[in-house]
Amino acid sequence: MGLTRGQLFEVGFWLTFALGAFALTYQFNLEIEIYEFGAYGWPRGVILCIVIAVLGQVYHDVRFGQAHRAVIGEDEERPQHDASYILRMLAALGLPLAYALLLQPLGFYALTPLFILAFLYAAGERRWPWLLGVTAFIYGFLLIAFARLLYVGLPTGNVRPFYDFSNWLLVVIR
């Protein structure tokens, strides 16, 4: 019995990961005077265990794959994904990442209300009063709790006019 495409991908991923991690250990295979195994001993031991576990998983998939897939329901046809599903998942995965990457230049204070609004929209909320109301509530709560009461220093951004806006808002809040 062979492996499915998904199982092959997983095996390929783990072996590539192990091989890459092992190759990188040569960048730090320096001797440590007081420690025989050096900085590379522990990572190489872990990598060896990863390879053993991958082989175990391959054995499991080959030997029991079909029965196992039947038990966990993988033989059922996977649901077909329409354009709306794909768009919403792209938003669910992409919006947080975009938000995280833009925080440094644009700052928490300017970016957060836009992110909350976009995320609510991506989650399927279409009623404007709710979109604006929930955004205002969460944003207001964060400002009061963290910026005013707890004095947590959040990113202010480093690009004008976002940086100026953040500082202005902080002065107003505090």
């Binding site: 990572p43 990598i47 576990a53």
Partner: peptide, 27 residues
């Protein structure tokens, strides 16, 4: 096996940074 791979992946992530004995940079 997937349970092991999960734990081992976590162990690999924990090796990123300076090693605890010699302070050598890793990954």
């Amino acid at each position: 096996w997937k349970g092991w791979l999960s734990v081992l992946f976590g162990l690999m992530l924990a090796t990123v940074g300076l090693d605890p004995v010699g302070g050598i940079e890793r990954y």
